[in-house]
Design a protein around this nucleic acid. Structure first.
Length: 418
RNA sequence: CGGGCUGUAGUAUACCGGCAGUACGCAUGCAUGGGGUGCAUGUAGACCGGGUUCGAUUCCCGGCAGCCCGACCA
């Protein structure tokens, strides 16, 4: 992609109504645009990051047997009345159409997936099943805040699993836990993300959250760094510490943001919808369910919060919008510019994703933009290196630079990033 | 949903009861060309409704919007 064609531009200042670091940097760099409180557009750069995060998640969820589908945002009122949540859920968006019919805008999808599962699950032979989607959720947050960490509309990966009994559910639950650990590691926040015991879970004492340490977080958790475990303040009791074998002295209080959660739903949803299966003896038995969510925008914002520095965003390679930011410092029609063009074509031909700064600007502005946008590798062609036919390589996370020939760079990045 | 604050060009801001100013951006030109360069010219603005007043962007009331604290929540 040529930066002259990118559509977005960077900005020196963030709007004053944005206080959160993630929103300030993402807006300045041109990743997102605020439409109203808690509602953001994902611009071309931002969407590329979302798609990358999606792909990391998809890979891991497929490994544990997840099958992707796509459920609607409009939900029949009856489904929500059946579970009692039409009235009990305060942040449910309800819309009325011209024929006065009321529908819900889905804040989560148990009310859709459960009756859907009833269509196709009727025997123990149909179990287990694990279905997931990436989908926009709507929640009437009374107070959206913290940029894309808490919106009224947000994209979420939600996975629902169906099992014949607790033993099978527990087994899958553990697999989901490992998958999540792997996902956050791959996304680059593994070191700061902790499996956390929290409230909820209809048929177990607690649910599990994945909490990433950051001052921008909204939750208070107690972390045992050595064991890689944490306890949410909401369930923090001596009894629980004892049960988990945690010692008070090993725990540190931290602010954290919940980037993922896993719930044991038991028969909370299968019961109202009559989702049952026949076991080997022909007996009608309730299906047990689990659900597992990750907010994509929240993950993206968290990465910016945790890894960003004074100069801008710092993306891990796994979710960067482009692998390489190629900068030409040559004037229009110069040999340097031609050489940069050549390198751009060479890299893209080999499927290396490159943002090519072909704009007619001075060096300082291009460097400042590159730091702000946060692509992992920066390549520069300018007078200083051109005489030797070399290109300067610099990582976003490091100060040191190195010189390479174009051929070296093409083969190096092709190998790594195919 | 309770409490507080704020609405001025695309962005950040200034001043003012009497023709709204600056910087960045954007456009054009010349110079410049390895860390947001320089000069010139141009472009664009008072959230909405009502009230007070000779006159309101300014004061008052209402609405709407945004932000902050709290409660709630992925």
């Amino acid at each position: 992609m040529r930066q002259s064609q990118l559509f977005t531009k960077t900005r020196r200042n963030a709007p004053t109504d944005e206080v959160a670091k993630n929103a300030q940097l993402l807006i300045r760099a041109g990743y997102i645009h605020k439409e109203m409180a808690g509602v953001y557009s994902y611009l071309p750069l931002g969407l590329r990051v979302i798609k990358k995060i999606e792909s990391v998640i998809r890979n891991e969820i497929e490994k544990i047997g997840g099958i992707e589908l796509l459920l609607p945002s409009f939900h029949p009122k009856e489904n929500w009345e059946k579970t009692g949540r039409w009235n009990s859920m305060d942040d449910l968006y309800k819309v009325t159409d011209s024929s006065k019919r009321e529908v819900a805008l889905g804040p989560t999808h148990e009310e859709i997936i459960t009756p859907l599962a009833k269509e196709f699950i009727s025997s123990y032979k149909d179990l287990p099943a694990a279905l997931y989607q990436f989908q926009t959720k709507f929640r009437m947050e009374l107070r959206s805040k913290s940029g894309i960490l808490r919106g009224r509309e947000f994209i979420m990966k939600d996975l629902y699993s169906f099992h014949r009994d607790q033993k099978y559910l527990d087994r899958f639950y553990e697999k989901a836990k490992s998958a999540y650990t792997e996902i956050f590691k791959k996304i680059g926040i593994g070191e700061k993300t902790f499996l956390t015991f929290a409230s909820g879970g209809s048929f177990s004492k607690y649910s599990h959250e994945f909490q990433t340490l950051t001052g921008a977080g909204e939750d208070t958790i107690y972390v045992d760094q050595k064991r890689g475990l944490a306890v949410n303040k909401e369930v923090y009791t001596d009894a629980l510490l004892k049960e988990l074998g945690l010692k008070k002295g090993d725990l540190v209080e931290e602010k954290a943001i919940e980037v993922g959660n896993i719930f044991n739903l038991g028969s909370k949803f299968s019961k109202p919808f009559g989702l049952t299966y026949k076991n080997e003896a022909g007996e009608e038995t309730p299906v047990l369910m689990g659900c597992y969510g990750i907010g994509l925008g929240r993950v993206m914002g968290t990465v910016v919060e945790v890894l960003g520095d004074e100069k801008g965003i710092v993306w891990p390679e796994s979710i960067a919008p482009f692998q390489i930011h190629l900068i030409s410092l040559g004037e229009k029609g110069s040999a340097i510019e031609k050489s940069a063009e050549e390198l751009y074509v060479g890299l893209t031909k080999n499927d290396v994703s490159v943002l090519f700064d072909d704009r007619d600007l001075r060096a300082g502005e291009k460097f400042a933009d590159a730091d702000l946008i946060g692509i992992p590798y920066r390549l520069v062609l300018g007078k200083e290196t051109h005489k030797e036919g070399r290109v300067e390589l610099k990582k976003r996370t490091e100060e040191k630079t190195s010189l390479h020939t174009k051929e070296e760079l093409i083969s190096r990045f092709t190998k790594i990033h195919v």
